[in-house]
Design a protein around this nucleic acid. Structure first.
Lengths: 182, 182
DNA sequence: GTCTATATGCAGATAGAC
DNA sequence: GTCTATCTGCATATAGAC
């Protein structure tokens, strides 16, 4: 294998280890040394390749929501379906938690803003029209964000108890937010 | 002045400096040395008095919401009023942000849970009755938490644009959540 | 080119001098 | 009651081994 091939493989090993550890422990509680150890290389190499711990974090903590399950949903049941999709998409929880907790760093906060915009606001906005469509989409995104926040950051166990009922009732609220005002 | 008197004054100076800096910069970005400098003492003394940086943080980042403005509000306009109070209470923003961003630490996460419970869930719960009162209070608290999250953690500027309209419309949603289901 | 060993500088924390 | 000296562990930078 060429020098470049080996380098690329190592790069990937570092990226994979970093993603795993950042998702599991978050930014502050993940030393570069642990990432290096897991990837089987020296800590200095991690910095060599990625510039800094923060760069590596931003490189790995990306999120694209698959909105395919949302495409054919009738507008009337969209709220409920959206809550369902957000809660059951695998990667969201870890990335979201890591970004929120790391958001004291300026660039991590920027990434959180992008993810919020792309994963929550945009899919909602796409289904709305009218003069206040933007405001409605942002309020609905806030409500959904609040659900993730309560479940994952605050850790409100009682809320998680009955998943079915939560999806139904909270979904109805989101629905109300995306519906035009009477 | 006695040894104890001076000690207490210094203690207070440290606490005040810590509160100011934690609110301004958050947990991770506030070195103990800066707190000591601002209080005019040695960094070791800060640890001596408070045990650890984390203890000092927990000691200073408390929050009690004044729910007096909520007592006489008719139940029908409670949602709107609650949003109004939460958004206009001075200390909330700083404490909330510091706790959320520090919540990677177990004990800080616990404090966030307490604050969420006491400042959001409890006032809502107090005004509800019925079998599903607890669930409704927790969903409403999630929605309000999501508003704070969007405004302060994510920094959704568009949402903050028209404060009047935001309070009115988001308040209506909270109202819907605390109202019994048809 | 790819990687390791090692140095620098800053953090929180501790021991003990005064 | 307060400070100095110091330990440990962190991210990061550099030199150079292979």
């Amino acid at each position: 294998m060429s020098e470049r091939g080996s380098g690329t493989a190592t790069r990937e090993a570092i990226r994979a280890a970093a993603a795993r550890l950042f998702l599991e422990r978050g930014y502050a509680r993940t030393p570069v040394r642990d990432i290096a150890g897991e990837a089987g290389v020296n800590a200095a190499l991690v910095i060599r390749y990625f510039g800094s711990k923060e760069e590596l974090f931003l490189e790995t903590m990306r999120l694209t929501i698959d909105d395919e399950p949302l495409l054919d949903v009738p507008i009337a049941s969209f709220g409920r379906r959206f809550v369902e999709v957000v809660l059951s998409t695998d990667d969201i929880r870890g990335v979201y938690l890591a970004l929120v907790r790391g958001s004291g760093e300026r660039r991590i906060a920027e990434r959180l803003r992008e993810v919020h915009e792309q994963a929550l606001v945009a899919p909602l906005r796409a289904r709305l029209s009218g003069a206040d469509a933007d405001l409605r989409a942002r309020m609905a995104a806030a409500a959904v964000g609040g659900l993730l926040y309560s479940l994952w950051v605050v850790g409100d166990e009682s809320l998680a108890d009955d998943r079915e009922e939560l999806v139904a009732r909270y979904g109805a609220i989101v629905q109300q937010l995306v519906s035009p005002q009477p």
